[in-house]
Simulated scan of single mutants.
Amino acid sequence: MSNSIFISDTHLGLQGERAEACKIRRFEELADLVVRQEVTAVYMLGDILDYWMEFRHVIPRYFSAFLCILRDLSRHDVELHWFSGNHDFALGRFFTDEFGVRCWYGMQELTLDGKRFYLGHGDGLDSSDIGYRLFVSLIRNRFNQKLLSALQPDLAVGIMRGFSRMSRKRNPAPSNEESDFLLQYADALVRQKDFDYFVCGHSHALKQTTLCNGRSRYINLGTWIDGTFPYGMFHNGEFSLQEL
C-alpha cells in the first residue's frame, strides 16, 4: 500500500508577508511529513499559487522558497501531480522539466491502490457559465501565453496578477452555493460512474461526506488562506482529512 497526500487552494502570493511566511513554514512541515512517512505521491489540486507566469530564461522570485520545497520532494522520488486551478492556470513546462511534476487540466479519473478517484480543482464544471469558459479559453491559449512571456518580466507578471484578480472578482468569496454545486455535481456523477472518492477544492469549504449511493465519498480540501492548514491523506485504502 502507498501513501498519498492531497492539498488545494493554498494561494501562495495572495496575502501579506506574515501570512505568506506562515504558509511556507507549513509547506516545509508537510514536506518533512512526506519524507518521514515515506509518502509516495503528492496531489496538488489547484490554486497552489495565486498566479504564475512562465518565461524561457527568468524564474519569478516570489515563489523561490516553494520551488526549493518542490526540488527537495523530487529528490526524494516523490510523485508530484499538479491540477491546474483558476489561478495557477498557466503551468507550462517548467514544473515538469525542472521537478518532474505531472500537470493535469480538468477533472481526471485515477486509480490509487485499487480505489477509483475523481480528482481536480473543481472549477469550470458548470456548463452554463459561459463567461468563465471564455475566460479560461483566453488565459490558457498557448499563443496568448507566448505573447505574455515575450514581454518584460515585471510587466508580464503584473498582467498575470491582474488575471488572478479577475478570477477572484468572478468568485469573490467562498459561498454555500458554490460548495453545494460541487457536491451536487459529484452526486450526479456517481449515478453515472462507479468511483470511491471525488476530491476537489475551489470553494474553500472543507468538507467530507457520503454521496447519494451511500458508499462513495465527497471531499473538499478547503483552503490555507484562513489560518488553517488542512490536507488529505490516503493511507491503507482509506481517505482522511488532517491538519498541520
Rank of each mutant, 00 (worst) to 15 (best):
D123N: 12
G106P: 09
L12I: 10
L45R: 13
G92Y: 07
F6P: 00
A205G: 04
Q108H: 09
E29C: 13
E20P: 15
D97F: 08
H204N: 02
D129F: 05
T40E: 11
L80T: 08
S2A: 10
S137L: 04
D32R: 11
Y43D: 00
F198L: 07
S137V: 03
L244N: 02
L147F: 15
I5G: 02
R165P: 02
R140G: 03
L67C: 11
W224R: 08
L14S: 10
M53W: 02
L211C: 04
G222A: 05
G122I: 08
V190T: 10
N86E: 14
K193I: 01
Q192M: 14
F63Q: 14
V42R: 01
H235N: 14
Q208W: 02
F99D: 09
G131I: 06
T111L: 06
G214A: 09
R102H: 09
P230N: 02
S167Q: 04
P174N: 10
F195L: 10
L138K: 13
L110Y: 10
T10P: 12
F117S: 03
L49N: 06
S128R: 00
N236R: 14
E243Y: 13
G162Q: 08
Y231S: 02
G85I: 11
M107R: 11
L211V: 06
M1V: 08
L148T: 09
H121A: 03
L73Q: 10
R142G: 08
Q242L: 06
V157A: 06
M107G: 02
L45H: 13
F163W: 07
E20C: 15
R93N: 10
R161S: 01
I159Y: 12
Y43G: 01
Q108Y: 01
G237P: 15
A21I: 08
D77C: 14
